[in-house]
Simulated assay, not measured.
Amino acid sequence: MENTAVVEVHDLVKRYPGASVRALDGVSVAFGRGSFTAVMGPSGSGKSTLLHCAAGLDRADSGVVRIAGEELSRLREPRLTEARRRRVGFVFQAYNLLDSLSVWHNVLLPQRLAGVRADRGWAEEVLRRVGLAGFERERPSRLSGGQRQRVALARALAGRPEIIFADEPTGALDLASGREVLGLLREAVERTGTAVVMVTHDPAAAAWADRVVFLADGRVVGELAAPTAEAVAGRMTAVSAR
């Protein structure tokens, strides 16, 4: 794994209107190329807010976010959207697929929205790797939850992103399907050098990562390298008791 950071956030602060506390309160963290990081914490700790700000989906009130050295706070639309589409892939718990489109067109959609020529050969390879070769013409509504999440992962990988942000990607899946998706994320890290940042509440899912970053009350309160499910569960118990 390279040490070069693909995403850096420094001293991020984020408040939501009407909230009495900061969703993010001075968060600083970096995610290296070819690394797999899980982000965990109690409900309301700022996990998803961190992911959305680091990915450029939401803007922090203050602080710095850099993706591949490019500072997002300096970008205005549509350059921010362009940078996000060029460098970042997304996988969400709710899949965010369009049932009006086939699997194939869902996978190619981000590249078409970005106005770039789709690499059809790579898209075919990605679908093969996630076990969906032969499903190109199917509609997402005809697939199982695990298959739909694999389509979402193929869509994220098809653009050759430098980093994939995954928000509870196994939360709606059964145990076997969840393991398949986690294995595919692990493979993306090891075979393509893509960085993965995954928000999860599941210690077993976090154990697939290289490290776990723990949040509480909008702050980073610890990290765990080479995690096991047991070690993550123990640390989460301590974090939740703060």
Results as ranks from 00 to 15, higher is better:
1 M>P: 02
2 E>G: 13
2 E>L: 07
2 E>K: 11
7 V>A: 04
8 E>M: 03
9 V>I: 04
13 V>K: 12
13 V>C: 15
13 V>E: 14
15 R>Q: 07
16 Y>Q: 01
16 Y>V: 01
19 A>S: 13
19 A>F: 05
21 V>A: 08
23 A>E: 00
24 L>F: 07
25 D>G: 01
27 V>I: 03
27 V>W: 01
31 F>P: 08
32 G>R: 14
32 G>Y: 01
33 R>E: 07
33 R>L: 13
38 A>H: 03
39 V>M: 15
42 P>G: 13
44 G>V: 01
48 S>A: 06
48 S>C: 15
50 L>R: 00
51 L>H: 11
52 H>N: 15
53 C>V: 12
53 C>W: 02
53 C>P: 00
54 A>T: 01
56 G>L: 03
57 L>P: 00
62 S>V: 02
62 S>M: 02
64 V>G: 05
66 R>K: 13
69 G>I: 05
70 E>A: 15
71 E>N: 06
75 L>H: 11
75 L>Y: 08
76 R>N: 12
78 P>W: 06
79 R>D: 15
79 R>I: 03
79 R>H: 14
80 L>A: 04
81 T>F: 05
82 E>L: 15
82 E>T: 07
82 E>I: 10
83 A>K: 15
83 A>R: 14
85 R>Q: 15
87 R>P: 04
87 R>T: 14
90 F>W: 04
90 F>R: 07
91 V>D: 02
95 Y>A: 11
98 L>I: 14
99 D>Y: 00
102 S>P: 06
104 W>K: 14
106 N>G: 15
109 L>E: 11
109 L>D: 10
112 R>F: 14
113 L>G: 04
117 R>P: 09
118 A>S: 05
119 D>F: 02
122 W>E: 14
126 V>R: 08
131 G>Y: 04
132 L>D: 12
135 F>A: 10
136 E>F: 06
139 R>L: 05
142 R>T: 07
142 R>E: 09
144 S>R: 01
144 S>W: 00
145 G>E: 01
152 A>C: 09
153 L>I: 10
156 A>F: 02
158 A>V: 13
161 P>F: 06
161 P>A: 03
162 E>M: 10
163 I>H: 08
163 I>P: 01
165 F>W: 00
165 F>K: 04
167 D>C: 01
168 E>F: 03
173 L>F: 13
174 D>K: 12
175 L>I: 11
189 V>A: 06
192 T>G: 02
194 T>F: 13
194 T>W: 05
196 V>P: 07
201 H>R: 06
202 D>Q: 11
203 P>V: 01
203 P>M: 02
204 A>C: 12
206 A>W: 06
207 A>Y: 09
208 W>V: 07
208 W>F: 15
208 W>P: 02
208 W>E: 12
210 D>A: 04
210 D>M: 04
211 R>V: 00
212 V>H: 05
214 F>A: 10
215 L>W: 01
217 D>C: 10
217 D>E: 14
218 G>S: 07
219 R>M: 02
219 R>E: 03
223 E>M: 01
224 L>K: 14
226 A>G: 13
227 P>W: 15
227 P>M: 11
228 T>W: 00
228 T>I: 01
231 A>V: 00
232 V>T: 00
235 R>N: 14
238 A>N: 08
238 A>S: 07
